[in-house]
């Protein structure tokens, strides 16, 4: 077994992550109990509160399974415990993988490549992934109190212009730029001067094809429940394709 993989899957690592997750779960329980009790105190219907708990749990089950698929995808390079931690807090599969790739390149590797990864680069990658996603938490710690007060005092419907702001488009544009850079590099790799490595582009195309089928079913056939699985399932299908293609090439 690869020494690096043994290290990132060591039992002690599971214990550390379990400790952090226990703290976060206790925090959620604390907020849950406090809110439930306050709801009762101010006269909210207990049946509605219980219904909210049950429906939220049911509503979360399917997307949680898709996150679990993400843990499998990430565990092959960063180990199960760290994939478990990262996909249980703050980020999402696309953030974690993208940042891990950037951090790996910044650490002097060609990318998230098992043959090049070692514990020193892993620790650096883990630190970049952790710090890179703290923006939302920092905003909450320093600005949520003031911002929520401002929201409460803001009169409703003050915006007469119905045109949505550029914010939503900016996020999309940023992701388009990210994807363009990575897909461009896979196209470059196909040429002799780039190494004639067609596998990354083939895998990206396979993933895009599966995602295209999902998008068709979600947008045209209105199977909205597939939305939660489309990304993780497309990735896993493309990864399976990589194994098959590699054995044939």
């Amino acid at each position: 077994m690869n020494t690096y993989l043994s290290s990132v899957n060591a039992p002690v690592f599971y214990l550390i992550v379990a400790g952090v997750m226990t703290f976060i779960t206790m925090m959620c329980l604390l907020f849950l109990v406090k809110s439930y009790r306050t709801g009762i105190q101010i006269g909210m219907d207990e049946a509605i509160l219980k219904k909210t708990i049950v429906s939220s749990a049911m509503f979360t089950l399917l997307p949680s399974i898709s996150i679990l698929l993400g843990v499998i995808a990430l565990s092959g390079t960063l180990g199960v415990p760290f994939a478990w931690l990262r996909l249980s807090v703050i980020g999402s599969l696309q953030y974690e993988l993208n940042v891990a790739e950037i951090a790996a390149q910044s650490a002097g590797l060609s990318g998230l490549n098992l043959a090049e990864l070692n514990m020193s680069s892993f620790v650096t990658i883990a630190l970049v992934m952790t710090f890179g996603i703290l923006g939302g938490i920092i905003c909450c710690i320093f600005f949520l109190k003031g911002y929520s007060k401002k929201l409460q005092s803001k009169p409703k419907n003050e915006n007469t212009d119905n045109k949505p702001g550029f914010g939503a488009h900016a996020t999309t544009a940023m992701f388009v730029g990210l994807c363009a850079a990575f897909i461009g590099s896979y196209i470059g790799k196909c040429f002799p001067q780039g190494g004639s490595d067609v596998m990354p582009l083939l895998v990206a195309l396979a993933s895009a094809l599966v995602m295209g089928i999902f998008e068709f079913l979600i947008q045209k056939k209105k199977v909205a429940s597939l939305e939660n699985f489309s990304l993780a399932a497309s990735m896993l299908a493309a990864m399976a394709f990589a194994v098959i293609a590699n054995s044939l090439m």
């Binding site: 998230l112 999309t172 396979a206 194994v243 054995s247």
Partner: peptide, 25 residues
């Protein structure tokens, strides 16, 4: 045997995301 799968996890991500965002915009 599964090495090619995990070594290509990033292309798998950007293939799927790329389609989603390129079709959207």
């Amino acid at each position: 045997a599964l090495l090619p799968a995990f070594n290509n996890v990033v292309p798998a991500l950007f293939g799927a995301l790329g389609l989603k965002y390129f079709v959207k915009s």
